[in-house]
Amino acid sequence: MSVGSHDHAPRVAIVTGGTRGIGAALTRRLAKRGSRVVAVYRGDDASARRVQQELDGVTTVRADLADPEACVRLVEDVLAEHGRIDHLVNNAGLLLEARSSDTTIPDWERVVAVNLSAAFHLASTAVPAMRAAGYGRIVNISSVTAVMGSPSEAAYGAAKAGLHGLTRSLARETARHGITVNTVVPGVFETDMTASMPEKTRAAIVKMIPAGRRGNPDELAAAVEFLLGDDAGYCTGSVLTVDGGLSMGG
């Protein structure tokens, strides 16, 4: 039976990387509007506990998304528990700073596995259930590095750029089944990672951003929330950039 956009049961969402930074901001937004959120994380148990204790309707799941079988198992477990998956946000990321000549084969393979392959395995496992329901929303979180490049992020940039092609191929595959697939490209945001940078580095980054500041994670979460909403049913195969103008260059 098609659940469609007029079904009023709580939405069920998977948010990878959903217990810290941008992912946590989105988990909070979705939970506070009544969604059942499965927030996936890799290893920070303390952050996962905080999110689960803070929010009703949130389940945290520890998983290594570099493992294709773990991705498949995750989706199957959510379907077994909730009977549906309405929203999938592929937000988990792994950034290893290294020039191409210093990137080892295992490093390359793990960066691609976490940032690109996991999104494919999760989506390809979730799409049949979404298709049967006649409804689904998939949002892939890319990076400004995918469009600007970086001398020390070749693997990361390549993997994140791959999400753009994956998004558009999945969008074409699923568009007539009530499913949308979009990409959001974040710039630099106020997260644990940027907070740990030296002040000189932080200041230099801000100078590159036309808006003159780093973004608040909730600003990116708002963009993702829009694409997950019923009102965004005509947006598919799109790339939405939320970077304060950073990728314009200059």
Rank of each mutant, 00 (worst) to 15 (best):
A13L: 03
E190I: 11
D231K: 10
P217R: 03
P68C: 06
K160Y: 01
D192E: 14
A159D: 04
G134P: 12
D44H: 11
S196D: 08
V15Q: 09
M130P: 14
D102W: 12
W108L: 14
A175P: 00
R33K: 10
F226V: 15
G4E: 10
L227E: 06
E81S: 15
I138Q: 04
M197L: 14
V78H: 06
M208Q: 15
A155I: 02
R20W: 12
V206M: 05
K200Y: 00
Q53I: 12
A25P: 04
R99F: 10
T191K: 02
L170G: 06
I85K: 02
A24R: 15
V184C: 02
S142R: 09
N115K: 10
K207I: 00
Y234D: 01
E173Y: 00
A171Y: 00
V12T: 00
R202G: 01
R131G: 07
R49F: 13
P106H: 09
H82D: 06
G157V: 08
S124F: 02
V72I: 15
R62V: 12
R28M: 08
G244D: 11
L26Q: 07
G17K: 11
S124D: 08
G21F: 15
A25E: 05
D230S: 06
A158Q: 00
I141M: 02
G18W: 11
H164P: 09
L227H: 08
T191V: 11
V185T: 09
V58Q: 08
D77Y: 12
R49Q: 14
A204L: 03
L79H: 03
V61C: 08
A13I: 03
E54K: 12
R213H: 10
Y135E: 01
T19H: 09
D192Q: 07
T60S: 12
V242E: 01
H164W: 04
A119G: 07
A159K: 06
G237M: 11
A25C: 09
S2D: 06
V38H: 13
V206P: 00
I85C: 04
V188Y: 12
S100H: 08
V78C: 05
A98Q: 13
S101Y: 12
V181S: 01
L88P: 01
D192R: 07
S100G: 02
A66V: 01
R168I: 00
S238N: 10
S150R: 00
E69D: 15
L94K: 11
N140G: 07
V242Y: 14
V40F: 09
V61H: 14
G57T: 14
G21T: 08
V75D: 05
T191Y: 12
P106T: 01
A158E: 03
M1D: 13
D67F: 06
D44G: 04
L116C: 03
A119D: 02
A118P: 00
S143I: 05
G17N: 13
F226M: 15
Q53V: 13
H6T: 14
A175Q: 11
G34L: 08
A46I: 07
R176T: 08
I14T: 02
T194I: 11
L96F: 11
A25H: 06
D56S: 15
A132H: 09
R49K: 14
D231C: 10
G34V: 06
A48N: 01
N91A: 04
G23N: 09
C235D: 10
